[in-house]
Simulated scan of single mutants.
Amino acid sequence: MLQLKNVDCGYGVFQAVHNLSFSVEQGQIFALLGPNGAGKSSTIMSIAGHVKLFAGSLHFDGQDISSLLARERVRKGIAVAPEGRRLFPDLTIEENLTVGGYSQSKVKEAVNRDMVFSLFPRLTERLRQPAGTLSGGEQQMLAIGRAMMAEPRLLMIDEVSLGLMPKMVDVCYNAIRHLKSQGVTILLVEQNTKRALDVADQVCVLESGNAVWQGSADEAKKDPDLIEAFLGMTKESAA
């Protein structure tokens, strides 16, 4: 579904990612892992069209989308729940969801809103509450829900569990599993390596903007050098 070929990307004259290539198959959960500053978020946002592509190409469903605007990529079926959530704090939950569904018809918007509420019932209880007054877990639910309002076939989620209580992390990961079961392809950036490896099919590990390892999540769990050197875990904790 998604293919990056020799991608260089960054901000202004700063290059954050170097010669990155990987493919994401339809229906997979693909995890981008690595330390802070590795280039994970830059990769996600370059796919979304918000970070400049210096070289290489991005293909989605066989089409080169490298030069498409961000809003055109949304219409192709790509949506992102960004790091830090980036909600509209003064808008209500309902209004944030409406913004997320701007590319859809009114009929689809209503259907997708119902889908979000079934995924995160807690949002229904706070429908008219400003997003800025929500807890961190509720904001993460809303960020994922807002992205799902675009009816994406590729959902990218950046730092799912960052700053969340364990119970809220469980809620978000249960939602991720459910979305996968519904055929949504997911590209996941995560600092919580164990949680990512538990749900991912494939993994790409980045360090200093370079891919240092690619393979299946099962292979990653069995590679002691990988998990200790790049993922900040011991082999026992990854098992």
Rank of each mutant, 00 (worst) to 15 (best):
L2K: 01
L2Y: 01
L4S: 07
L4W: 02
N6L: 09
V7N: 02
V7H: 02
D8N: 14
Y11R: 03
Q15F: 00
A16W: 06
H18M: 03
H18I: 06
F22Q: 08
E25V: 13
N36S: 10
G37C: 08
A38G: 05
A38M: 06
K40N: 05
K40D: 06
S42E: 01
S42I: 04
A48S: 14
G49N: 09
G49M: 05
V51N: 11
F54M: 10
F54Q: 12
G56W: 03
A70P: 10
R73G: 09
I78K: 09
I78A: 10
V80W: 01
A81V: 07
R85L: 11
R86D: 11
L87A: 07
L87G: 11
F88C: 12
D90G: 14
E95Q: 15
L97T: 07
L97R: 00
G100H: 00
N112G: 07
M115D: 13
M115T: 15
F117A: 03
S118L: 13
F120T: 01
P121L: 05
P121E: 04
T124C: 12
E125A: 14
R126W: 08
Q129V: 14
Q129S: 09
Q129L: 11
A131R: 04
T133S: 13
G137A: 06
E138V: 10
Q139S: 08
Q139F: 10
L142H: 03
A143H: 00
A143R: 00
M148R: 00
E151F: 01
L154F: 07
M156F: 09
E159Q: 08
G163I: 05
D170I: 14
K180F: 02
G183Q: 04
G183E: 03
L187P: 12
N192V: 05
T193K: 06
T193Y: 08
V199K: 00
V199N: 00
V203G: 01
G209D: 04
G209R: 02
N210A: 13
W213S: 02
Q214T: 15
D218V: 15
D223I: 12
D223W: 05
L226N: 06
I227R: 09
L231M: 09
G232I: 05
A238R: 12
